[in-house]
């Protein structure tokens, strides 16, 4: 994990003094609260896993550090959870908000108490609230995928499965299409499949019945890619050259590592970015220099060669 953190920080192009063994002896009481969505999807499941792992490790490294991880099933409950956390006298809050609109004000309230705020993945409406912003790069996520299609296929028909109508999905899809511009690759169909395996299976079955010739599929998410693969297998279609998911689910990364023809690459959008945010936040208190600013974890193309860097066999995701 420390490895990932180092790497992320390097990507972000920021040098932060590392909270390492050097400072571990210094006993300083700090409470960090972590508020994240409950695990309702593979990716959020992964986020919960990484948050809990990071909490354990950080508390070992820094005696006196207390990390409270709190999950909430929806935006309203998350706002309530923030109220509860405030009552516990926290020094810092790491929050992965359900959505920006609903949670901007509740987080602002926490900030008013003088709490250090780290926001993960989905930015707040008012950027001045956050001390640190750690995010995956959604436009990049779409662009990297699109570029791979344009470079690999040169030309052909592509179908797209979208997630849940949100800003995240929109940024990804728009930039995917932008990256295809000028190439011979054409998006012949796109439908929402809600980042859900069953829905992806259904939509892919229908694509296969509707379109006699499909060259590749952008499933835009590894959960959806699994549904897509099953539909293709059933239809015994040979025309589809590959399926590209995304987010770096361990099974998919494994298949990339193993050189699966249908899954040649993946695009990273690691759920571990919560852990990164927690590390950076801890570093703010235990490190040499206060941390501030935006850390963007770029979406990267995972290939057979670098896949082992993205493979976490113990993560549920």
């Amino acid at each position: 994990m420390k490895h990932t953190m180092l790497k992320s920080l390097a990507i972000a192009g920021l040098a932060v003094g590392l909270a390492g063994a050097a400072h571990a002896q210094e006993k300083k009481n700090v409470t960090i609260a972590v508020s994240i969505p409950a695990a309702t999807h593979g990716w959020t499941g992964g986020a919960v896993y990484h948050a809990e792992e990071a909490a354990k490790r950080l508390q070992q490294t820094h005696p006196g550090l207390k990390v409270i991880v709190k999950t909430s099933p929806d935006g309203a409950s998350q706002a309530n959870a923030l109220d509860d956390l405030m009552a516990q006298k926290i020094d810092a809050l790491v929050v992965l908000p359900f959505n920006s609109d609903e949670l901007t004000n509740p987080v602002r309230e926490v900030k008013k108490r003088g709490t250090f705020i780290t926001v993960v993945d989905r930015g707040l409406k008012d950027a001045s609230i956050q001390d640190i912003y750690v995010a995956g790069n959604n436009p990049e996520f779409g662009r990297v995928a699109g570029k791979y299609f344009a470079d690999t296929l040169k030309q052909g028909n592509v179908v797209v499965l979208r997630g849940i109508p949100t800003v995240i999905d929109d940024e990804r899809v728009t930039n995917f299409e932008k990256a295809l511009e000028g190439s011979g690759v054409k998006v012949i169909d796109k439908q929402y499949a809600n980042w859900n395996r069953d829905d992806a299976f259904r939509v892919m079955q229908d694509y296969l019945s509707k379109h006699p010739k499909i060259d590749a599929v952008w499933a835009s998410d590894d959960d959806m890619a699994l549904g897509v693969l099953e539909a293709i297998r059933q239809a015994k279609r040979e025309d589809i050259k590959f399926v590209l998911g995304g987010a770096g689910m361990k099974e998919m990364v494994k298949r990339v590592m193993d050189g699966d023809k249908m899954i040649p690459v993946n695009v990273s959008y690691p759920p571990a970015l919560v852990a990164t945010a927690m590390n950076v936040t801890a570093a703010h208190f235990y490190g040499n220099a206060p941390a501030r600013g935006t850390y963007v974890l770029n979406a990267e193309l995972i290939t057979k060669d670098n896949a082992k860097n993205y493979y976490f066999p113990d993560s549920p995701f």
């Binding site: 593979g42 499941g45 919960v48 896993y49 099974e251």
Partner: peptide, 11 residues
């Protein structure tokens, strides 16, 4: 289910 899957996927 979420508990059994520890948030992830039961495969």
């Amino acid at each position: 289910v979420i508990f059994l899957a520890a948030g992830g996927t039961i495969t």
